[in-house]
Design a binder for these strands. Structure first.
Length: 509
DNA sequence: AAAAAAC
């Protein structure tokens, strides 16, 4: 069997690979690396979890090993669909390039331009970016792509889903015709096929077997649940969810809980926290600093439950998740496969529990068709019964009427927001714990008045809301162009300050 | 009925 040492990688890369504890390349790595090292274009058809990232980072580092970057002209470019994926690729470079002098910059949205500009100006070997922010830099004239020798497109099918293909085409056209292209996609949709025909030259095609969709290591379960009141579906599902998690007990070391909507992610996370579960939300409306913090916390175990939108369904490298819970049935069957694929990795056993209501039937059918087997039905945990409170609307009388003054202030009606915890000790008895919500309801208004002014930012993420709360802070938008960075500290995630530290100084010497 | 990504 091929070993990494059999591949003609730079000894410095091999050293880093060995130090990271790897000996044997995965099929996509063994297939792609030799072609990439020969300078050929590569078309890799592979899912996440197949070792795709290293299959392009290792040869890139090797190929770039000689030569030096010039100001504003990166020598290579990696495009990723989401910020987290880009950050993850960047971390990979840190690991495998640690014995080299290569420099890199991570260009993603949600963080300030300043630091990114500085790195680009200095000259970087590797640019890792999401398409939007990359083009933004380009349009501001800060970046030239004419020096790109190697371009990587990661998760192209997802780029397609997200409408990035025009951006990708444009970026292709900004790079030299002579560049080497490494292109990865999980599927070959017609549009992807067209792109590869247009921009790849005689690529070596490496296809690795689709991960068994229902991997042997994932135990799938379906809990069919009929809410007693349609308007209380979400609330009742949350109660069921708590019962399911509790029933798993110690076996559930950590878990990702998927919801279909960002608002639902927030609600479920808050609700779980309220009941004493160590949970944090992650979705695209949270600011980048928070997204990274949450992900780091989840990786290092300080967060046990990650409540997520599909931003976390694919690609993110989150090792050793014991459970995946689908609070909502995903409306795209493929997402189901991606979601449950977050568990049962690397030979470990995993459990994926999906909660379905009758209205999910259509999606369920599609999922079972895709995975080519029925999902095993299981009963709700023994002894589970909906508390009375969960069957009643949150408030009785004026429940559907807008709150007084809500329209005038333009604020969203927040009555349905979960209320802060009132004593964790209630957490074990559903009937009891739901009471505080009702009791607390009258206080909500008062609390909201305070919150509206003191909450730092963000929370009010109604998109249609024309008022920009952050106007309050007009003074910390830097007044002039002086080079002091003011008020940016909050927006600088840790990972951006990590780079090839010892070498960065010498690079422009 | 959605999520993601640029300000």
């Amino acid at each position: 069997m091929t070993k990494f040492s059999d591949l003609k990688l730079d000894p410095k890369v091999l050293k880093a690979v060995a130090e990271a504890g790897y000996e044997t390349p995965t099929p996509i790595q063994a297939g792609a690396i030799p072609h990439a090292l020969e300078g050929k274009d590569v078309l890799g058809i592979a899912q996440t979890g197949t070792g795709k990232t290293a299959s392009f980072t290792l040869p890139m580092i090797t190929l770039l090993g000689r030569g030096r970057a010039r100001a504003r002209m990166p020598r290579s470019l990696v495009l990723c669909p989401t910020r987290e994926l880009a950050a993850q690729v960047a971390e990979n470079f840190d690991i495998y390039a640690k014995h080299t002098k290569l420099t890199k910059a991570l260009l993603i949205g949600g963080v300030s331009f300043g630091e990114q500009d500085k790195l680009i100006d200095r000259g970087v070997d590797v640019l890792i970016a999401t398409p939007g922010r990359l083009l933004d830099h380009f349009e501001r004239g800060k970046l030239l792509l004419t020096g790109v020798q190697i371009m990587v497109v990661d998760e192209a099918d997802r780029m397609l889903d997200m409408g990035f293909i025009p951006d990708i085409e444009r970026i292709f056209q900004l790079t030299p015709f002579t560049r080497q292209t490494l292109f990865f996609s999980a599927t070959m949709a017609p549009e992807i096929e067209r792109i590869t025909n247009t921009f790849l030259h005689a690529p070596a095609k490496i296809e690795v077997a689709r991960q068994a969709t229902t991997s042997e290591t994932i135990e799938q379960r379906l809990i069919e649940f009929t809410p007693t009141r349609k308007d209380q579906t979400a609330k009742q599902k949350r109660e069921l969810l708590r019962a399911v998690i509790t029933a798993e007990g110690e076996a559930c070391t950590n878990a990702i809980l998927f919801c279909n909507r960002k608002t639902e992610v927030d609600i479920v996370a808050k609700s779980l926290k309220k009941y004493g579960f160590n949970a944090s939300p992650i979705h695209g409306d949270l600011d980048q600093r928070q997204r990274m913090q949450t992900l780091d916390g989840f990786r290092d175990g300080s967060i046990r439950f990650l409540v997520a939108s599909d931003v976390a369904a694919r690609g993110l490298d989150i090792p050793a998740v014991s459970h995946v819970f689908n609070f909502d049935v995903p409306s795209h069957a493929e997402d189901y496969v991606h979601r449950i694929g977050r568990t049962g990795r690397a030979g470990r056993k995993g459990v994926a529990v999906t909660i379905a209501t009758p209205s999910d039937q259509k999606y369920l059918d599609a999922i079972e068709k895709l995975v080519e087997r029925p999902l095993p039905r299981v009963a709700p945990p023994e002894g589970f019964a909906l508390s009375e409170a969960a069957q009643k609307p949150a408030r009785k009388d004026d429940d559907r009427k807008p709150r007084r003054g809500a329209e005038k202030t333009g604020r969203k009606d927040r009555r349905d927001r979960p209320v802060k915890p009132h004593g964790e000790e209630a957490a074990m008895t559903p009937v009891e714990v739901t009471k505080p919500v009702e009791q607390a309801a009258p206080q909500v208004e008062a609390r909201d008045e305070v919150k509206a002014d003191t909450r730092p930012e963000k929370d009010n993420r109604g998109r249609g809301d024309r008022k920009d709360n952050r106007r309050d802070h007009k003074d910390d938008r830097r007044g002039g162009r002086d080079d002091r960075v003011v008020g940016m500290g909050d927006h600088m995630p840790d990972f951006l300050t990590r780079s090839f530290k010892p070498k960065a100084e010498k690079a422009d010497g």
